[in-house]
Computed example of a mutant assay.
Amino acid sequence: MNRYQVATAELASSQKSGAGVPAYLRWVNRGLGRRAAAVAYVAGLSPNAVTLISGMLSVGGMVVLVFLPMSALSAVAAMVLFLAGYALDSADGQLARLTNRGSIAGEWLDHVVDSLRLPLVHLAIALCLWRAGLPDWSVVVALLFLVLSSSWFFAQTLAGKLSAKAADDGSAAEGTPDWVSFAKIPYDVGTLYVVVAALAYPPLFLVLYTGLFVVTAAVAAASLRRKYRALLAEQRDYAPEN
């Protein structure tokens, strides 16, 4: 076998459990990320370089939405760029495990890129809708989605630092049935990127995008409540720093 085949085989054997993970991430994105990680390995790229390329692809999708006329071609181009960036977002961690080059600094860089990516995608969508003259309420939904995605990401990250129990939603528990992965499709970020293609037909996009916002808001509210209750239960063991 050549180096690419060896790398993909090794990555496949060490793949994270997919139990409870959203369907697109579980069955599509991780597989694409595995192949991208193998290509990066053959090319001699570092995990940090893959992280930065992932971010640049996402920025490319935003540029398409903000500056090109709304059309089927631009909508599909933006979707492809976003999905490619998402695949590389999975590839950097897999490459780090493959090459034993994982680091705290690399994990920090990955989180910084992630913390910027999703809010900026919603900002790009808001600008795209505004520039196309679509209803003001749709721009407001996009801006609210921006705030929601940013605050939920921060809350999840902070909960993970404060308490491993609070960070654990049980989403990756072994034995979780496959239907759970399909139930999570509406708030998988990959679903959002696919929905971007519907900008080719704005009325359909507005229905799908608004639906994603409503579902994501409901799930985020439940998640935040769960994390707060878990942290509250550990309060007596918490000794604040002076």
Rank of each mutant, 00 (worst) to 15 (best):
R3H: 08
R3N: 06
V6L: 11
V6N: 02
S13F: 03
Q15R: 13
Q15P: 01
Q15Y: 04
Q15G: 00
S17E: 10
S17I: 07
G20V: 02
A23N: 09
A23Q: 03
Y24Q: 04
Y24A: 08
Y24N: 09
R26C: 10
G33E: 05
R35S: 14
A38Q: 06
A38R: 03
Y41Q: 07
Y41T: 01
V42T: 07
V42A: 00
A43L: 12
A43Q: 14
S46Y: 03
S46T: 15
P47F: 09
N48V: 11
N48R: 14
A49D: 02
G55R: 08
L57G: 02
L57R: 05
L57N: 05
V59M: 12
V59L: 14
M62C: 14
L68F: 13
P69Y: 01
P69W: 05
P69G: 05
S71N: 07
S71P: 02
A72H: 02
A72G: 12
S74H: 09
A75E: 08
A75T: 08
V76H: 03
A78P: 00
A78L: 10
M79H: 06
L81D: 04
G85D: 09
G85M: 05
S90F: 12
A91Q: 01
D92V: 06
D92R: 06
Q94M: 06
L95H: 02
L95T: 06
A96R: 01
L98W: 04
N100E: 15
N100G: 13
N100A: 14
R101E: 13
G102R: 03
G106S: 09
L109T: 09
L109I: 12
L109D: 04
D110L: 08
D110Y: 01
D110S: 10
H111F: 08
V113Q: 00
V113R: 01
D114A: 08
D114K: 01
S115E: 02
L116K: 06
R117I: 10
L118Q: 07
P119S: 03
L120K: 01
V121T: 13
H122M: 12
H122C: 10
L123P: 07
A124T: 00
A124D: 01
A126H: 03
R131D: 07
P135Q: 08
P135C: 09
D136Y: 10
D136L: 15
W137A: 08
S138T: 13
V140R: 05
V141K: 03
V141C: 05
L144R: 00
F145I: 04
L146V: 02
V147R: 03
L148P: 10
S150Y: 12
S150F: 13
S151G: 03
F154H: 04
F154D: 05
L162G: 11
A164N: 10
A164E: 15
K165R: 13
A166K: 00
A167K: 06
G170I: 10
S171L: 13
G175S: 00
T176V: 10
P177D: 11
V180E: 11
S181N: 11
K184H: 04
Y187G: 02
D188K: 00
D188P: 02
V189C: 05
G190F: 05
V194G: 00
V195Y: 09
V196K: 02
L199A: 04
L204K: 07
L204C: 06
L206K: 06
L208D: 06
Y209C: 10
T210V: 14
G211R: 04
G211F: 09
A218V: 15
V219L: 06
L224M: 13
R225C: 04
K227Q: 15
Y228R: 09
R229F: 13
A233T: 05
Y238F: 15
Y238P: 03
